[in-house]
Amino acid sequence: MNPVQPAVEPLERMPARVRLRPTMSSDLPYVVSLEQDPENLPFITPWERTQHEAAIRFPDFRHFIVEGGAGLEAVGFVILVGCRNPNQSLELKRMVIHAKGEGFGRATLRMVKKVAFDDLGANRLWLDVKARNARARALYDSEGFLVDGVMREAVKTSDGFVSMVVMSMLLHEFAARRSGGLEMRA
């Protein structure tokens, strides 16, 4: 019996372009508003504004505004942690896209992988996702992330405890996907 392969979105069918730009202090009201949006709250643990301010300044973090579409308007934000990790293990701490269903999440994730492996020299890019976040888990799976394990009932929420699924991609897996035309070129 052959395992079912995840659906893969070829690069040539990518949505309107996206780019990442460093988050500025003036962007923080937008960032905080995305985290507080009732559509996003079930899937993230929001930060205080001061945590975002620290992430903008601290060299081990990369905090980006995601701009997308024809006019390159803000469509979300991304936070990477461990940019100076001596083990070259980089965490995708948070990715919040407000323009859902338009392909910006997939395009952003591909850009994040390129930045992590090509620009920041990561050997491992990892993330954790709430087990109940089926949409995000499907995206990460289809983009080549593998499940490392599950942290059972790791996060307390208003309706009980939620398990976290830890997923990762290694540099050699990214390189293989790139060779197969599934990732952006360097």
Rank of each mutant, 00 (worst) to 15 (best):
I56D: 00
A138G: 12
S142F: 03
V115L: 14
K113G: 05
R57S: 12
S25T: 11
N2Y: 09
L92K: 06
R135H: 09
M167D: 10
V150Q: 08
G69N: 04
A138K: 11
K130W: 13
G101M: 07
N87D: 10
F43D: 03
L109C: 10
L20I: 04
M14C: 04
Q36N: 09
P10A: 03
M167F: 06
A186D: 15
M1W: 08
Y30L: 07
L72R: 06
M151G: 03
E67T: 09
L182Q: 14
A175S: 13
D141T: 14
A70R: 10
G103E: 10
V31I: 10
A107C: 10
P15W: 00
G121R: 10
V4K: 11
V66N: 02
C83L: 04
M14E: 11
G71A: 11
F145G: 05
A186C: 13
S89P: 05
R124S: 12
L171F: 12
P59S: 04
V147R: 14
R178K: 14
A134I: 14
F104A: 02
V115K: 10
V8M: 08
V31Q: 00
A74V: 03
E143L: 11
K100V: 15
G76S: 02
V31R: 00
V81Q: 07
H98E: 14
I44R: 00
F104C: 06
R135A: 14
F43A: 06
V66M: 05
P29L: 03
P59H: 03
V75D: 00
A176I: 12
V31Y: 00
H63F: 11
A122I: 06
V112F: 04
D159S: 13
P86A: 03
A131S: 15
K100H: 02
G105H: 10
F161M: 11
E102K: 15
S142E: 08
L146R: 14
G71C: 07
R110V: 01
K113S: 12
L171D: 14
V165C: 10
L20D: 02
R106T: 14
